[in-house]
């Protein structure tokens, strides 16, 4: 079984985010890392291929400046190869363009039984890319998977819902978006990290994939204003010395909650 995993490489979320004042888009300059949200998809794919006993996990990513550090992390976890789409013309792409590019990259890799993405990325979190990709590829999809199994050409998913979960089945090939917590991602081993250095990463441009228009030209949206949100006024902070709960009771009384 062959699985393709979408892997987004993002600025370290531990660092405060910043918008570029000239373009009003997220600054993506420094080193990028594997979006933690995608580590679940990578792990899920590795487990599925392992269980099937044949096939491999391939990665696709769109990122600026030929960035591969996040891809290397996923390769070190055990993925076999990757396609990276990197192209200055892709700067400023909207989610729809991203989905078109990733769909074309998936096609380039050839027939996969499953394409896995996260339900949403940590930096842009539109949550639209996976379902858009499925539509571009004319594929069925199951979003918000909290467990995934593949049996004889059918993917079975427990799909999280507002009220609980649904059991959903779908013939492969299909696209599945997975939630955080679907599986426990492994840490790359030293051996894995060394092996990842020589695994193939093919770098292509949007034009190589036949996707146009891209970037600013492709996005039918324009940021017109960035403003500071009104801050909440700071409240009263007290140290508990054994009686702080009374302060809460008093506060709730004041609000007539009790």
């Amino acid at each position: 079984m062959n699985v393709i995993v979408c892997v987004k490489q993002i600025p370290d979320p531990a660092q405060p985010g910043e918008l570029d004042p000239s373009t009003n888009t997220l600054k993506r300059e420094g080193k990028l890392i594997l979006d933690e949200s995608d580590s679940y998809g990578v792990e899920m794919a590795l487990q599925l291929v392992d269980k099937a006993g044949e096939g491999e996990v391939s990665l696709i990513s769109m990122a600026p400046n030929g960035e591969v550090s996040g891809l290397r992390t996923a390769l070190a976890m055990g993925a076999a190869k990757a396609v990276l789409v990197s192209d200055p013309d892709l700067a400023g792409s909207d989610a729809l363009t991203t989905a078109k590019v990733l769909a074309a990259a998936a096609k380039k890799l050839g027939d996969a039984d499953l394409i896995i993405a996260a339900t949403e990325s940590s930096d842009g979190y539109t949550g639209t890319v996976p379902e858009q990709m499925a539509e571009v590829l004319g594929m069925p999809s199951i979003t918000f998977a909290k467990s995934v199994a593949v049996e004889g050409g059918t993917v079975k998913v427990a799909r999280q819902t507002e009220a609980g979960y649904d059991e959903v089945e779908c013939p492969t090939p299909a696209l599945v978006s997975v939630t955080a917590g679907v599986v426990e991602p492994r840490y790359p081993s030293f051996k894995g990290i060394m092996a990842a250095k020589s695994k193939p990463v093919e770098e292509v441009t949007a034009a190589d994939l036949g996707v146009t228009p891209v970037g600013w030209a492709g996005a039918d949206q324009q940021i017109v204003d960035v403003a500071q949100a009104p801050a909440r006024e700071a409240g009263e902070i007290i140290e508990d010395e054994g009686e702080a709960h009374l302060k809460i009771v008093e506060f709730l009384e004041g609000l007539k909650v009790i």
Partner: peptide, 23 residues
């Protein structure tokens, strides 16, 4: 911006070839 809304708007955006503004 919830499960169903997100899934429908995403597929529709491809069918209409229109961007989606989210959140």
């Amino acid at each position: 911006q919830n499960y169903e809304g997100r899934d429908i708007v995403s597929r529709l955006s491809v069918k209409l070839d229109r961007t989606v503004l989210t959140n």
